[in-house]
């Protein structure tokens, strides 16, 4: 592996350029096969009449409980959403717990109840699992892995790769950005910030289903988790023969999130969400999809935030609030708080 790092840095897990390099230069290089090469949110497996979507995700959030959710809710929603954005109907989940010796039973129970509740709401069943307990200090309280399987109609296969995207398509997001990342950050005691920020953590399969049932031409979906909206957009447009135009004044950022980003020097477009889907929809269907999503509790603030363009092929441009322009690149590592 061509790599200038002899150790893994935190930045390798940030979802930005370093993570990207790790995945392409190590994992997909050695695990290489045609399914993995697609690098979509879920692997799409051909099994005859219907296709299967299959995905996995691990959750290591600190703290375990935060306004708007907890690690358990996150573990369900994260995997359900990875299936749903591939156009699949999520059905079955597995769950693996890695528990640190000394975790209070009531905390674990609280997490499990939250998972059960979220799975019930999403209409998925947890059908298999595994438990490991490690010595104190060998993991941070509780890590959870979930895998999920869903079924996928053949006609929706292109959604995860975005291969049907065309010039003029509209880009839609179902509400404000940056809530999850900043809610978790505020919940960490080290900052001593009391902010009124709630994570957007939610299963989106219901919302996505309602959009797909309109029959609209949805050419791409992805949940904007780690790395935020900016990372989804820059990954989407990379080495494509189209460009992306985003309008900053269409992006919703809640006041608490905005304030905390100001304080830390963060850019909200790179802050994590756990209940936001970016959809690319044919121009003629876009308004209809927005109207339907707005009816859904997780989509009341849905708006069109940009479009696929013929200009700037291979790059994404943001028209700033004040009428300037700037490019949207993938973040290199973690966003770091600035000095002054």
């Amino acid at each position: 592996m061509k790599n200038k790092f002899d150790t893994i840095l935190l930045g390798h897990g940030s979802g930005g350029q370093l993570s990207h390099d790790l995945i392409t230069d190590l994992f997909t290089k050695h695990f290489d096969n045609d399914i993995l090469r697609q690098q979509s949110d879920s692997a799409i497996l051909e099994t005859g009449k219907n296709h299967l979507a299959y995905t996995t995700d691990s959750f290591v959030v600190d703290p375990l409980f935060f306004p708007g959710g907890d690690i358990g809710k996150l573990a369900i929603a994260g995997t359900v959403n990875d299936l749903a954005v591939s156009g699949a109907c999520p059905l079955y989940l597995s769950v693996g717990f890695i528990i640190e010796e000394g975790l209070s039973f009531s905390d674990l129970e609280r997490v499990v109840l939250s998972m059960a509740e979220e799975a019930r709401k999403a209409g998925v069943r947890i059908v298999t699992g595994d438990t490991k307990v490690v010595d104190r200090g060998k993991c941070d309280k509780l890590f959870i892995n979930t895998s999920g399987i869903g079924i996928l109609d053949k006609q929706h296969v292109p959604i995860s790769s975005g291969s049907n995207i065309k010039i003029g398509d509209k880009i839609i997001i179902n509400g404000s950005i940056g809530d999850h990342g900043m809610a978790v950050m505020a919940a960490r005691n080290e900052l001593n910030i009391s902010a009124d920020i709630t994570s957007d953590c939610a299963c989106l399969n219901g919302l996505i289903k309602s959009a797909m049932e309109t029959g609209a031409q949805i050419s791409f979906m992805r949940d904007a988790t780690r790395g935020g909206l900016g990372t989804v957009i820059s990954e989407l447009v990379k080495s494509k023969n189209y460009g992306i135009r985003l309008m900053e004044d269409r992006l919703k950022v809640n006041d608490g999130v905005k304030g905390m980003c100001e304080l830390l020097g963060f850019d909200p477009i790179y802050v994590a969400n756990e209940g936001k889907v970016v959809m690319v929809v044919a121009e003629e269907d876009a308004d209809r999809v927005v109207a339907v999503l707005k009816q859904h509790p997780s989509g009341t603030q849905t708006s069109i935030i940009g479009e696929i363009t013929n200009d700037h092929q291979g790059s994404a441009w943001l028209e700033t609030l004040v009428g300037g322009k700037r490019i949207i690149e993938m973040l290199s590592g973690q966003q770091l708080p600035r000095i002054c």
Binding site: G265, D267, L318, G323, G324, R326, R338, I339, C340
Partner: peptide
Amino acid sequence: CGGHTMSIQKYGIPYL
């Protein structure tokens, strides 16, 4: 000031 550098680029001031 580095804060100005960042703001100028972030808001796309040179284009204006």
